[in-house]
Design a protein around this nucleic acid. Structure first.
Lengths: 352, 352
DNA sequence: CTGAAAGCGCTTACAG
DNA sequence: CTGAAAGCGCTTACAG
């Protein structure tokens, strides 16, 4: 027998949280009945409406909330789905986190997101932690070593999906980086080529060449040049990492000013814009850029020719479909980006 | 007795996760010993080094990870701390979420954040959900009705702290909105007044007058005008809500163009910048603005006179101190903002 | 229409 | 040096 709680009805019971035993005791019924009423299965247990009402009333009165640790432990399913994400504080990952939570809740899951600061060790530890929380499925976003996490999940029998960066041991949903970069570079080359007959190529700034997304974007960048018969010298590819400062430093080290820049992310773009703002105004305005990523303010900067916005709703739609599906593939699904010009004709895309 | 697991060592055991019983069985010892070894209390239980090593090896081999639902259920403390936050996808809340997670992990907590889209019902439900997860403490960020959530937490015996927006039933940590707005308005009035002898006042755009932060900022805005002997007509306060579109519409409806605008958040600023970009260039450049919030790109826009950056590290420092402290006050702690001019002299503040 | 009982996986006194 | 046992709060067959 459980010790009877010393809670006074309608009052916080000193320290201890109300349990179904407390409620059963107050109402004068069994914990089983309370449990059935509280999670809606009481009809099929043919509990009387009257008893159900009494129980519900007391539960509210005592501020009862179920202990999910206990509930999840007992049930076979946890309903928890996890996400590992590198950052929150830019528009792209912020939108992913936000829409992942929303979509998860809509589908009856409890989402738990962990931010891992692009640290491979932290990514792995976070995944392990989420497994300890009995997630039913783990979405791994932008991970440095997704396959290691996939192995971990498989050995725990937990479904895993790669988002943004592909892996080889789980299905992946990523943006079409090649096509997006191709379109974006075409845009920049067109504007840039029209001014006069220069045959110099553009610069590519940011990211790392061994990162899948960066290398795909470089491929698109080169392809757009090839289409115009332009050859890009190796020295025009400044894959200097992701830090804003690195982009700034790399550009500042150039002997001649570039005329056009393909920026690999808004993080790098911060460095580029910083560098631009330090140039004399007459030089500033000659330098156009585009950016593979979306930021509403960056899009309205005077030198911005266009941005490639990753289609977060479509990416997540696919992720949720994969979660539902039981089939275990290692397919890579590519989602097209939205190309956005400097001045959107209407207010489309301004978040409200 | 537990049924012996049919896991083959080194292999995923079909579906079922490895438990301490499985490990005990493999090693030929008791679950208690396994538990003690796995959570580091084995020394004081005087378990032999040899047994401890065997257990650790098998745990790794079988890919064991503790079931935290079970562990938390049994222990008195959950180590989980929760946060309710309105948005991820802007710099301010993104930084709060990210640094909250980092700080929590550093201090040995497991952080769980829920994003509630500024929906009061969702805020309350999210808080209830986090209580069900046995959070030890709940940080409520920018909530519409923080006191309702405070009541809920108190009745569950869970500590609660308000961040960004103050409440009356729990300690609050907020930015010094009055002083920040005063400084920011002074900056705008100074630049703006120098051009010629206009005595017209500035416009205030965004937010809601019944929201504490907005009303404090309006107070600072008015005070800065009063210092200059300027009177602000009611019609210059466009507290039109938080949506970007609203700011856009309100400005578009004005009969005369404003000369200077105090923008209440980066969300509203998106609408303002949108509206600006649609004006003819010669009119655009006459309109200066400042913004209470920080965004690296917005700060570099040509018309931006200054931004007030909320001091996220300092805000969170205070929050974590309050979590440690047991004393239960309803004190409101105000944290100064950093005022940032249009062109930072160095690269300070560019996130890396 | 309803309750007693088992058990989810763990931790922690307690008893050797 | 180590194990048996109780119990965290719940859910769910099972037996009336």
């Amino acid at each position: 027998m459980k010790p009877s709680s010393d809670a006074r009805p309608g009052t916080a019971n000193s320290g201890k949280r109300t349990t179904i035993y407390d409620i059963a005791h107050s109402v004068g019924t069994s914990p089983s009945a309370v449990s059935a009423v509280l999670n809606g299965t009481w009809r099929k247990r043919r509990i009387s409406q009257k008893l159900a009402d009494r129980i519900s009333a007391v539960a509210i009165e005592q501020g009862y909330s179920v202990n999910l640790q206990a509930s999840v432990l007992r049930r076979d399913r946890s309903n928890i789905i996890g996400m590992v994400i590198p950052k929150y504080d830019n528009r792209y990952f912020g939108a992913i986190a936000e829409q992942f939570e929303e979509g998860a809740r809509q589908r009856g899951y409890f989402p738990v997101i962990t931010c891992t600061q692009r640290d491979p060790e932290l990514e792995f530890e976070a995944a392990r932690m989420l497994l300890s929380y009995q997630v039913e499925c783990l979405v791994v976003t932008g991970a440095t070593d997704p396959d290691r996490i996939s192995d971990l999940c498989h050995s725990a029998g937990v479904k895993v999906i790669n988002l943004d960066l592909p892996g080889t041991k789980a299905p992946s949903v990523i943006s079409d980086n090649f096509q997006g970069a191709l379109d974006l570079t075409r845009l920049l080359l067109r504007d840039w080529g029209n001014e006069d007959g220069r045959s110099e190529s553009l610069y590519f700034v940011g990211g790392r060449t061994n990162d899948h997304n960066t290398s795909e974007r470089i491929r698109g960048f080169l392809q757009a040049h090839a289409e115009k018969g332009l050859n890009v010298p190796q020295t025009n590819i400044l894959a200097c990492g992701y830090a804003a400062q690195k982009a700034h430093t790399s550009l500042a080290a150039l002997e001649r000013l570039p005329e056009g820049i393909f920026v690999n992310s808004t993080i790098s773009l911060e460095g580029v814009v910083m560098w631009l703002s330090e140039l004399p105004p007459e030089r500033q305005q000659r330098i156009q850029y585009c950016c593979f990523d979306w930021d509403p303010f960056a899009a309205l900067m005077p030198n911005c020719v266009g941005m490639a916005q990753q289609d977060v709703p479509a990416l997540l739609d696919h992720v949720f479909n994969l979660i539902k599906t039981d089939l275990d593939s290692t397919e890579i699904k590519q989602i097209a980006c939205n190309l956005r010009g400097q001045r959107p004709s209407q207010h489309a895309g301004v978040a409200s």
